[in-house]
Simulated assay, not measured.
Amino acid sequence: MLKGTRNIVGMALALGMMLYAVPRLDFGGGWTLASVFGAGWIAFALLVIAAHLHELLGVEEETKRELLKIKRIKKWRLEQSLQGRRSLLQIKK
C-alpha cells in the first residue's frame, strides 16, 4: 500500500470507532470506573488519530531528510577510513 493510504485507513477506522462508541459511553454518573474508562478510551483514540494526521501532513519530513543525509555522510566517512587503513596495511606488507 502507499504511505498515505495506510494512514488514511487507520485514521478512518479510528474515527469510525469514535463515532460508534462515543454515544454509547457513560459519562453521567460522575467519576465512576466507566466514565474514567470512557475518558481514557477517547484520549487514546484521539492520540491515534493525531498520530496518523501528523504522518499524513509530513510534519517531520525535513527532519527525516536531514537524518538521512547525516547517515550517508557517516557511512561515507567510515568507508573512507576503512579504505585508508586497508591501503596502510598493504604498504606495510
Rank of each mutant, 00 (worst) to 15 (best):
L19C: 06
Q90Y: 13
E61Y: 10
E62R: 11
I73K: 01
M11H: 06
A51P: 05
E66T: 11
S35C: 02
D26E: 04
A45R: 02
R77V: 12
L25K: 01
A43G: 05
M17Y: 11
I8Y: 12
T5K: 14
H52G: 05
M18S: 04
S87F: 13
V22P: 05
E55T: 00
G28T: 15
H54C: 05
A14Q: 11
G58S: 11
L15V: 10
I73L: 01
D26V: 03
Q80P: 06
L82K: 03
H52L: 09
W76D: 02
E79N: 07
L78G: 06
R6N: 15
G84D: 14
K93D: 12
E61L: 14
A34N: 01
Q83I: 08
R72A: 10
W41H: 07
S35W: 02
W76E: 01
W76K: 00
L56R: 04
K71S: 12
T32R: 04
V9C: 01
I91D: 13
L46P: 07
Q80E: 10
G10R: 05
Q83F: 03
G38A: 05
W41R: 04
V36T: 12
M11I: 14
I49C: 04
L56P: 04
L15W: 05
R77Y: 06
M17W: 07
L67K: 01
L19K: 11
K74S: 15
A45K: 04
L15S: 05
